[in-house]
């Protein structure tokens, strides 16, 4: 029994091939799916079929995805449905508008199938309060060195401005992340493709959560995932604290495929 079994997903996408393939993707992962090709029939299906979540394109004929969001959020029976936007529109305005109208998640095309699965699974977490107190979320992609370093630098600024962490703790956290990224990029390039590892740092009122995701190809050997797990948890050298100890917690695998999570409470909380 998997977490997503029996979860009903309505896919509203006007491109028949994409709609059919997304439904098939979800079917093989245990979801129950239904597809519609425009906003108007999609709204009707949402009202009648009562899905747990919607995968919603924005550019739809007759009634667009923004309007679908707006109408569903205004109807009490539908206001709790999870809405994942899947759109070719990557502009800031579209994202802001979608979130203002009630979207929960937003993925741009091209999307990796694993991203869709991950976002759908994460939609289930919101209602139980796990997002309460979330101040900031920053995703870092383990790509080339300078790009990765730049993203970690941005995280440093977030930690300084939004957490009670001491400067020395922030410096250590970021040094650890840089070391891990360097190790993956320099020593595991054969198993771990650049861009296949994502680290999401979520800053809450009382804690910092590190979420590591690996999007390696499904049929690849497990070498990549093993390298990622090792990099984030192994003992470094004798007498030195491990990566986990330096980050102030322990990584645990979650129900999501290829995901590790470490939560570190703030001392002052």
């Amino acid at each position: 029994m998997t977490l997503q079994e029996q979860q009903r997903i309505l896919v509203i996408e006007d491109e028949p091939a994409i709609r059919e393939l997304v439904c098939k993707l979800l079917d093989i992962h245990g979801f129950v799916t239904h597809g519609e090709g425009d906003g108007e029939t999609g709204l009707n299906a949402a009202r009648e079929w009562r899905p747990d979540a919607l995968i919603l394109d924005l550019m739809l004929p007759f009634v667009d995805g923004f309007e679908v969001c707006r109408q569903l959020r205004a109807e009490p029976p539908q206001e709790a449905v999870g809405i994942l936007i899947l759109s070719a529109r990557s502009d800031h305005e579209s994202r802001v508008r979608a979130f203002e109208l009630g979207a929960d998640r937003y993925l741009t095309k091209p999307f990796h199938p694993n991203e869709v699965l991950r976002e759908l699974l994460s939609l289930r977490e919101s209602p139980d309060g796990s997002e309460v107190g979330l101040r900031r979320r920053r995703r870092i992609d383990v790509v080339d060195g300078p790009n990765y370093r730049g993203q970690v630098d941005e995280l440093v600024a977030d930690l300084f401005h939004t957490t009670p962490m001491a400067p020395a703790e922030i410096a250590e956290t970021c040094a650890v992340l840089l070391d891990v990224g360097r190790e993956l990029l320099d020593h595991h390039a054969e198993d771990v493709a650049p861009g296949s590892v994502h680290l999401t740092c979520e800053i809450f009122d009382d804690r910092l959560r590190h979420v590591v995701n690996y999007d390696g190809e499904p049929n690849r050997s497990n070498g990549g995932w093993k390298a990622v797990r090792d990099a984030f948890s192994h003992e470094s050298v004798v007498g030195e604290p491990s990566v986990e100890q330096k980050l102030g917690g322990s990584f645990v695998e979650t129900l999501h495929p290829h995901e590790l999570v470490l939560t570190r409470p703030f001392r002052s909380a």
Partner: peptide, 19 residues
Amino acid sequence: TQEGLLRRYLSDAQPGSSE
């Protein structure tokens, strides 16, 4: 294309499929 990538993923995920 996006469609092609999805077909490739499904083909890999379901050996023997013609996606």
